[in-house]
């Protein structure tokens, strides 16, 4: 869906290119997370996709079309765009904010109104009580959800998200992330997601592309990157607790065997293996029972992380 080939961005006066011969394919319907230390070129790469930044050389294809041959304004209207600071228009109501792109595309008002309510429902905000409010009357988490709704308004196949949940407190961030994943499973957008938070990358990404100094270091699904880091840099970047991170990607039920252990604590089957292990360690037992049957023993965890 998105194909970057030999992409280079050299900013005037910079000692080295911000993006240096980057090749990257993002398949339709997948969330590709761009991650790396600051200055690695992840945001620059994302902003070249909708031509907020013009590439120095290389090509970018979106849905088979070379974006450099498209009118940038039309291109952007077909790509959802979410940024960390949200950038809601403070002088417009929530409804008007969401309606931005539909209005630019000239939709008729009844269609726009229907779409606004549909999106507010999708993000779990009651249309009657939020439609006519202003951004400043909302919490940070609510604003960010409106930002996502606004990006989805004209139903673009592609979404660009630049640290979209970075400014929200941890508890609300987890909620907004879960909500987005739920929406994404339903809508199957092609998403380029920029973050510097490896936990977020593991949680949100179907694939992670790790960048350093404008170059691609490794590109892999989260589980694979954690299991087989390409080099020492990747290993350091994903962290010393990568074994635990891998457990966070799977549920207890996927490790379970039939039976039960007397005296072991019980957790629900869809608890993440990481949380299950934590419960086990805390209780001092060597196994956990799953509600609804099945047991995960200590050695079952090793089988996954060793």
């Amino acid at each position: 869906m998105i194909k970057l080939k030999g992409l280079v961005k050299q900013f005037a006066g910079a000692p080295r290119p911000a993006v240096d011969h980057l090749d990257l394919d993002v398949a339709a319907g997948e969330v590709c997370v761009l991650i790396g230390p600051s200055g690695c070129g992840k945001t620059t790469t994302m902003r070249m996709v909708n031509r907020l930044i013009e590439p120095t050389s290389g090509t970018i294809e979106v849905n088979g079309h070379d974006v450099t041959h498209m009118n940038p304004v039309e291109l952007r209207r077909g790509i959802g765009y979410v940024i960390q600071q949200v950038g809601l228009f403070p002088h417009m109501t929530i409804a008007a904010n969401i309606a931005t792109v539909p209005h630019l595309l000239g939709w008729d008002e009844t269609k726009v109104a229907r779409r606004i309510d549909e999106l507010l429902q999708l993000i779990g905000m009651e249309p009657e009580s939020f439609r006519d409010r202003y951004p400043r009357e909302l919490s940070g988490g609510q604003r960010q959800r409106i930002g996502v709704a606004r990006a989805l308004a004209a139903d673009p196949p592609v979404l660009l998200m630049d640290e979209p949940f970075g400014a929200i407190d941890p508890i609300n961030r987890a909620r907004v992330q879960d909500e987005f994943l739920k929406i994404q499973r339903q809508l199957k957008k092609t998403v380029v997601f920029v973050t510097h938070d490896i936990d977020e990358a593991i949680k949100m990404g179907d694939r992670i592309a790790l960048l350093r100094d404008g170059r691609l270091v490794q590109q892999a699904p989260p589980a694979e990157m954690l299991a087989r880091p390409a080099n020492g840099f990747v290993e350091d970047f994903v962290g010393a607790d990568r074994a635990l991170k891998r457990l966070s990607l799977i549920t207890c039920v996927s490790l379970a065997n039939p039976g039960s252990v007397v005296g072991a604590p019980e957790v629900s089957a869809d608890t993440s293996a990481r949380d299950g292990l934590a419960v086990m360690l805390e209780s001092g037992a060597r196994a956990i029972n799953l509600a609804g049957g099945g047991v995960v023993r200590l050695e079952d965890f090793f089988a996954r992380t060793g």
């Binding site: 907020l52 949200v86 950038g87 931005t100 630019l104």
Partner: peptide, 8 residues
């Protein structure tokens, strides 16, 4: 930036 990114 948001306005530009949305194609205004």
């Amino acid at each position: 930036d948001a306005a530009r990114g949305m194609g205004m």
